[in-house]
């Protein structure tokens, strides 16, 4: 058999089966990358959390010892508590974003420019946001410090106060997050059915009632995405804590993501296993939300088909 005919045969074989094979061929590169760098490492982290490991030498299996240590670790509870505060307060970005979107949803001259500038904080890196707010809060000369001093007589060094520091960082985080929610709602408001609004107006619906019964139901897809990205954002908060306080003062602004990093790559020796166990806890917390989101998306997908 000549080479040419083998080639012809394999080509026609491909041609016959191409509709069945193409999706797999197209999926393989992306899938391999995603499995190697995202899916498999998740399981590896679970496994590593059972070891004592400095990242270089031998791993020693210690079973659940990392978790037992974790549940006696004061810093873990501080981080967990801060994560909950983050989660609750960060969700304020959703109504705040809606409020600004409603404020800006007009057709006056130059409104497009205003919308872009309101959205601006989201485009800037969190590192820069952190530096901006560190300056804003800076004792003796920060705008915020001076403002408080003018109003009450004594300034507050927000980032040096263990009771206030987390709230100060969250405020910085809210700034870009509100911008994000705002843009989601502006897009949503754009698509609100004008006929329904007019019909409701004829029925004398106004203000809050209109918003609650007519507008918000139509904004449900925007609200869903806003809640998803805000919850994920709250639990991922790392950049701002690292930039603004490095977890301080006295570790009081730590969150789980930061504490994990601190332990795993600690300057007093790497504790990869212990870090992995913190990551597992954070992952499990996140999983509660992720499964809820995915469940809702699968439902939508079913209805769409």
């Amino acid at each position: 058999m000549s080479l040419a005919s083998t080639e012809r045969r394999s080509r026609s074989w491909w041609r016959e089966h191409q509709q069945r094979l193409t999706p797999y061929v197209f999926l393989i590169p992306g899938l391999i990358f995603f499995l190697v760098y995202v899916i498999i490492p998740i399981f590896e982290s679970f496994w590593l959390s059972g070891f004592k490991w400095d990242g270089l030498g031998e791993k020693t299996w210690i079973g659940m010892a990392n978790y037992r240590e974790l549940f006696d670790d004061e810093a873990f509870y501080t981080s967990l508590k801060n994560n909950i505060i983050w989660l609750v307060l960060y969700l304020l970005a959703v109504p705040a974003g809606l409020f600004i979107a409603i404020f800006l949803n007009q057709r006056v001259r130059g409104i497009r420019v205003y919308k872009s500038f309101f959205f601006f904080p989201f485009v800037i890196s969190q590192v820069v946001v952190g530096l901006i707010f560190a300056w804003f809060y800076a004792p003796n000369f920060g705008l915020f410090y001076l403002l408080v001093e003018k109003l009450t007589g004594t300034g507050i060094a927000v980032l040096a106060d263990p009771d206030l520091v987390t709230y100060g960082i969250i405020a910085a985080g809210l700034w870009p997050q509100i911008a994000y929610c705002m843009i989601l709602y502006l897009t949503g408001l754009n698509a609100v059915d004008p006929e329904q609004v007019e019909a409701a107006r004829l029925d004398a619906a106004k203000g809050w009632k209109m918003l609650w019964y007519v507008i918000l139901p139509q904004l449900r897809p925007a609200t869903f995405i806003a809640v998803v990205v805000t919850v994920i954002g709250a639990l991922r908060s790392f950049d701002l804590v690292s930039i603004m306080t490095d977890g301080g003062p006295f570790g009081s602004s730590r969150v789980l993501s930061f504490y994990m990093y601190e332990q795993a790559l600690s300057e007093y020796g790497y504790r990869m296993g212990y870090g992995a166990s913190i990551a597992v806890i954070l992952f499990l917390i996140m999983m509660v939300f992720i499964s809820g989101f995915i469940w809702k998306m699968v439902e939508d997908e079913r209805q769409g088909n």
Partner: peptide, 29 residues
């Protein structure tokens, strides 16, 4: 094809995980 929706939601879900659960293995790799 079989597995389409499962693979799709694997991509979606992976996108939401905290970075820290990937950190140690990815750094090691």
């Amino acid at each position: 094809f079989r597995g389409n929706i499962v693979i799709f939601f694997m991509f979606v879900a992976g996108n939401f995980v905290p970075f820290q659960i990937l950190m140690v293995p990815v750094r090691d790799m």
